[in-house]
Simulated assay, not measured.
Amino acid sequence: MNVVDMFLSPVELAVLTGRKVKSKQVEALRRMGVPFFVNACGRAVVTRAVVEGRAQLERGTPTGARSHWNPAVLGG
C-alpha cells in the first residue's frame, strides 16, 4: 500500500465530515468519535483503516478519539 493511500484524501475527508473548512472537519470528527490527528498544517488526518474498520491503535490515542467507533448507520 502506498503511503498516500493510507490516509483519506481531502475530498474523502470532506465527504465523511460534510465540511470543507479544516476547523469544521475537526469539530465533525470529534462529534463522530472518529480517531484522527491534526498535522502541522492544521488539517485533520484520518487513516483509511479507521473508516474501513481495520484500525488497531498500538500506541497513543488520536485527538478526539473514543475507545471504539461504529458508524451510526450500523446502530453503534
Results as ranks from 00 to 15, higher is better:
Ala14His: 00
Glu52His: 14
Lys22Thr: 07
Ala72Val: 10
Leu16Phe: 00
Gly33Asn: 15
Val26Leu: 12
Lys22Asn: 07
Pro71Arg: 11
Ala44Cys: 09
Ser9Val: 01
Leu13Ser: 08
Met32His: 06
Ala40Ile: 09
Arg43Trp: 10
Glu52Gln: 15
Ala14Asn: 09
Asn39Tyr: 03
Glu27Met: 14
Gln56Ser: 07
Val50Thr: 12
Ala55Phe: 10
Leu13Pro: 03
Leu16Cys: 06
Gln56His: 10
Val51Phe: 12
Lys20Gln: 07
Pro71Ile: 12
Pro35Leu: 08
Leu13Lys: 08
Arg48Ile: 09
Arg66Phe: 02
Leu74Glu: 13
Ala55Glu: 13
Arg48Asp: 07
Lys24Ala: 13
Val73Ile: 15
Gly64Ser: 09
Glu58Gly: 05
Pro10Asn: 13
Thr47Cys: 04
Ala55Tyr: 09
Val73Thr: 12
Asn39Cys: 08
Pro62Asp: 10
Glu27Lys: 13
Leu16His: 01
Leu13Gln: 07
Gly33Ser: 14
Arg54Pro: 07
Pro35Thr: 10
Arg48Glu: 05
Asn70Tyr: 05
Arg54Met: 12
Gln56Met: 11
Arg54Leu: 15
Val73Gln: 08
Leu29Asp: 01
Thr61Asn: 00
Val34Ser: 08
Pro10Lys: 05
Gln56Leu: 11
Thr17Ser: 10
Ala72Glu: 14
Gly53Tyr: 10
Lys24Gln: 14
Val21Trp: 04
Pro35Trp: 01
Ala44Leu: 08
Lys22Ala: 14
Ala44Ser: 08
Arg19Gly: 02
Ser23Met: 14
Gly64Tyr: 00
Leu16Tyr: 03
Phe36Gly: 06
Leu16Asp: 05
Arg19Phe: 03
Pro62Ile: 11
His68Glu: 13
Thr47Val: 08
Gly18Arg: 05
Thr63Val: 11
Pro62Ala: 11
Val73Asn: 04
Val73Tyr: 05
Met32Lys: 12
